[in-house]
Simulated assay, not measured.
Amino acid sequence: MASSLKSKRKYHVFLSFRGEDVRNNFLGHLYKALDQKGIYTYVDSEELRKGEQIDLALMKAIEESQIAIIIFSKDYASSWWCLEELAKIIDRKEERNLMVFPLFYKVEPRELRTPRGSYRDAMAKHESKYGKDSKEVKRWEKTLSDASYLSGWHLKDG
Rank of each mutant, 00 (worst) to 15 (best):
Y105A: 05
P102I: 12
G131P: 08
D35G: 08
K106S: 15
R116W: 10
F17Y: 14
G158R: 12
D75E: 13
V43M: 14
Y40D: 11
W140K: 06
I89Q: 00
K106D: 14
H126M: 11
A124W: 07
F104T: 03
N25P: 01
E52G: 04
G158M: 10
N25T: 15
N24Y: 15
L58A: 04
L34H: 05
D75T: 10
M1T: 14
K125V: 12
R120E: 15
R116N: 11
Q66T: 10
M123Y: 07
G152Y: 05
A87Q: 07
L48K: 05
P109E: 06
M123T: 06
D133R: 12
G19N: 07
R110N: 13
R139Y: 00
H12Y: 10
M59L: 15
R113F: 05
F26N: 02
I54L: 15
I71Q: 00
A124G: 00
M59G: 01
T41L: 09
R116T: 05
A57Q: 10
D35Q: 13
I70W: 00
F17P: 02
M59Y: 04
Q66W: 00
Y130L: 14
Q53G: 02
D44Y: 07
K32V: 10
L34P: 04
V100T: 13
I67D: 02
K93Q: 15
A68T: 07
M1W: 01
